[in-house]
């Protein structure tokens, strides 16, 4: 029997404890590149509300994981991704991609960006504003995908086709970042639980 001539995806391996050396060497304590990538998600010209997103990533014992690397991927305030198939043009300097690591002592991570707009879903549907997050760390064998939605988008969230595929309504709450104001700044809190009773919903994309 002849086989189809597709190739097979290269297997994943954990990013390990020293992921910072490769992807955020400044955080590992040395200066090597002219610039590190992913620290400025939205750029200076992006329209929309400036926000900060903060959180921690907990393991199955409820302890913060202190060697996580997160990447974010999002649309701009008009719901357009910086990509040829992203739905249009974005502002100069808007990439929509970010990379952060957790603090070695506390496990806190955070990034500044603009709040994304609604995006097109499948078959003509509309998706609530959200940021895709990708999480790697020592002990995580293949990167975990999740989505961060916004607590002040109650109606859009209620109609979001992805949130609504989650059968367990209680688990939908794990995808909602909580909005607050700190010193006049809009902050969304998004704690991620890798495992356990309040385990965050992760997606097979």
């Amino acid at each position: 029997m002849t086989k189809l001539d597709y190739l097979t995806e290269t297997p994943s391996q954990t990013a390990g404890p020293y992921v910072h050396i490769g992807l955020a060497p400044g955080a590992a304590g040395f200066d090597i590149y002219r610039q590190e990538l992913g620290w400025d998600i939205a750029g200076p010209n992006a329209a929309g509300e400036r926000i900060r997103v903060e959180g921690r990533v907990m393991d199955g014992t409820g302890s913060p994981i202190k060697d996580v690397l997160l990447e974010a991927w999002q649309a701009n305030a008009a719901g357009v991704y910086a990509h040829p198939e992203g739905g249009g043009d974005v502002e100069e300097g808007f990439r929509g991609w970010g990379r952060v690591i957790t603090d070695f002592a506390t496990g806190e991570w955070g990034f500044d960006t603009v709040k994304p707009g609604a995006t097109a879903g499948r078959n003509g549907s509309v998706q609530a504003p959200h940021i895709t997050l990708w999480i790697v760390a020592r002990g995580i064998n293949i990167g975990l995908n999740t989505r961060l939605y916004f607590s002040d988008e109650t109606e859009a969230n209620a109609n979001d086709p992805v949130i609504n595929t989650i059968e367990w309504e209680r688990r939908r709450q794990t995808l909602i970042a909580q909005r607050s104001k700190e010193d006049g700044k809009v902050v969304y809190r998004f704690d991620i639980n890798i495992q356990g009773q309040d385990e965050t919903v992760f997606f097979d994309v």
Partner: peptide
């Protein structure tokens, strides 16, 4: 991996513009 592995199944997500695009 023991305490860093999700126990629930991943939720299958049909790809949209955000999944077929990237930096």
């Amino acid at each position: 991996s023991v305490t860093r592995s999700p126990q629930y199944s991943l939720i299958s997500l049909e790809q949209t513009v955000g999944e077929i695009s990237g930096p």
